[in-house]
Design a protein around this nucleic acid. Structure first.
Lengths: 113, 113
DNA sequence: TATCTATATTGATGCACATCTATGGGGCTC
DNA sequence: GAGCCCCATAGATGTGCATCAATATAGATA
């Protein structure tokens, strides 16, 4: 565990430029985060104890129609930033830490040589 | 330096949800990264030794018109992801590591309690 | 000054998307 | 089964934006 943390702390390797295909895939995720409402949705889920939020709580946090929030949730699901699970009448949303982590790593700038 | 590295390695604190105003500001940056061409531009600059790339080299990397690339560079500058410096006839672009770092940190998920 | 190169700006165009209202479907409770 | 609540889907609409051709600007050179 200690070693892993140290490894994670080491400077990231210099990367080759993204090819067009990979760039398109990654850009889809960033585009999903490029809407203020979706960014707030992710933020709400991230800061919620238990890591799980009911769709109704998300809808209630905005002055937008329920279908609009539902649309944004679908976009975030489609790019792999959220997962959902239905329990009885309610749908609960969670973050996908792997996706967040991948994006975060991509933004980590190689040491300015 | 050692201590700073350790601090940077500590798990990120749980965050309050972004308010609408901050979300709008951050979303602008993510939206800029949400275009495949702009993402590749950032990637090209990031992976370039010296951290500096001539606009002409960026334009040459795409099968897009020069004004289109110029437009994308302006977008990336406006959100603080790139800076530019003119030297003679050429304009050189650099990343802004602080902005990249801020975005990266925002995507670091708090430990799933 | 005239001109060539590198970059930025302008204006136009077609498509993508955020939002709404209306409706559909799934799952309770009476 | 009837009615109600939660969520998703469908269709319509106005705005935003990626792209281009044309043009303007800045700097070098002759």
């Amino acid at each position: 565990m200690e070693i892993l943390e140290i490894l994670e702390c080491s400077p990231p390797p210099a990367r080759e430029p993204l090819d067009a295909e990979r760039a398109a895939a990654v850009a889809r995720a960033f585009k999903a985060l490029g809407d203020p409402v979706r960014l707030q949705i992710v933020s709400i889920v991230a800061s919620h104890a238990g890591g799980e939020v009911c769709a109704c709580d998300i809808t209630g946090a905005f002055e937008l129609s329920q279908p609009t929030i539902s649309h944004h949730l679908k976009v975030l699901k489609d790019v792999g930033l959220l997962t959902s699970e239905r329990r009885a009448s309610w749908v609960y949303y969670r973050l996908v830490p792997e996706t967040l982590g991948d994006l975060s790593a991509l933004l980590t700038v190689p040491a300015t040589a």
